[in-house]
């Protein structure tokens, strides 16, 4: 299954899936209801595996990631980071990991909750991205991939969402 997280307007994203509608795809988009992570660690110590914020529809992201073969992110690149909505979704998916730590190559990371790996593909868009921002974004995705135990990471930069659509079809 492919999971797509994007920050586009519904109308803007309509028709993107095209022929890929044959495969199983779950799309996470901005319904306007998402609440921010509260930093409570409840997804680790109160309701392990799910977020304690239940009413906005973004509480089972960790479990969704565990069923995904590919996690595709489509985001405006802002200062070398994801846009606020995409960041919010990622922040709310903390339950994908365990709270426990493991040290690998001299660095501490969280242990995985699931015996699972997905491919991480990130499509950033922006018309005036600086080299510094692109460099930062590459480092960010690499670090995310390491912490999420992704099987591979790919980062692409596009000047507009339309160019991403063309590249994907």
């Amino acid at each position: 299954m492919r999971t797509i997280i994007h920050d586009l307007q519904e109308q803007e994203f309509a028709g993107w899936l095209g022929d890929t509608a044959q495969e199983e795809v779950t799309v996470i988009s901005d319904s306007g209801a998402i609440r921010s992570c509260m930093g409570c660690f409840g997804c680790w110590t109160r309701t392990p595996g799910t977020c304690v914020i239940k009413r906005d529809g973004y509480d089972n992201l960790g479990e969704l990631f565990s069923r995904s073969d590919e996690l595709m992110i489509i985001s405006k690149c802002m200062y070398g980071s994801y846009s606020p909505f995409v960041l919010n979704v990622l922040n709310r998916s903390l339950s994908y990991m365990l709270p426990y730590f493991v040290t690998t190559h001299g660095e501490t990371h969280h242990r995985p909750r699931y015996k699972h790996q997905f491919k991480l593909s990130v499509h950033f868009y922006g018309s005036d991205l600086t080299e510094g921002e692109q460099h930062t974004a590459r480092m960010l995705v690499a670090a995310n991939g390491l912490n999420l135990y992704s099987s591979e990471n790919n980062v692409y930069f596009h000047t507009s969402p339309q160019h991403i659509k063309e590249a994907l079809q």
């Binding site: 930093g39 919010n88 990622l90 960010l140 995310n144």
Partner: peptide, 17 residues
């Protein structure tokens, strides 16, 4: 701020934007 997902927490990031 605390480090979230190797970056800035989303609510603070929105503030910066």
């Amino acid at each position: 701020f605390p480090l979230y997902y190797d970056g800035i927490p989303s609510h603070l990031f929105q503030l910066l934007v």
